[in-house]
Computed example of a mutant assay.
Amino acid sequence: MWAAHLLPALILCSLSFQGPSYVGAHSTQFTCEADGKFPDNENPQLYFICTNGVVSEGHCESGESFDFNPQQCAPYGSKGECVDQPEGALIPHDDDHRFYKCSHQVAYQITCVANLVFNPAVNVCDWDKELHPEYNVCEGMPNCLIPDNADPTRYYRCTDGHRISLACPSGKSFDPTNKTCVDLNYDICTDEAEGDMVPHTDENRFYKCSHGVGYQITCWEPLVFKYGRCNWASAEELPTVVYLGPCHGQEDGALVANSADPKAYFLCFNGTSQSQTCLSGSSFDTNSQSCVAFGTSCVDKADGTFLPHATNPTKFYICDHNIGYEKSCPRGLVFNPAKSVCDWPSAG
Rank of each mutant, 00 (worst) to 15 (best):
A3W: 10
P8Y: 06
A9V: 15
I11S: 14
L12W: 14
S14P: 05
S16F: 12
S27F: 07
E33Q: 15
K37W: 09
D40M: 04
N43A: 00
P44V: 02
Q45L: 05
T51H: 12
V54I: 14
V55G: 06
C60E: 08
F66S: 03
D67C: 07
P75M: 03
Q85W: 02
A89L: 05
L90P: 01
K101Y: 11
C102S: 00
Q105W: 04
V117K: 14
N119W: 09
A121Q: 13
H132N: 13
N136L: 03
C138V: 04
I146R: 00
C158S: 00
C168G: 04
N178A: 13
N185K: 00
G195N: 07
P199N: 03
P199T: 03
H200Y: 01
N204S: 14
F206Y: 15
F206A: 08
F206G: 01
C209E: 09
H211A: 10
I217K: 00
E221T: 13
V224I: 14
G228K: 00
A233S: 14
P246D: 05
Q250D: 08
E251A: 15
A257C: 06
P262I: 05
L267W: 09
G271F: 06
D285Q: 01
F294S: 09
C298Q: 04
K315Y: 14
C319D: 05
D320S: 14
H321A: 15
Y325A: 05
K327Y: 04
S328E: 11
A338D: 13
C342P: 01
S346F: 11
A347R: 11
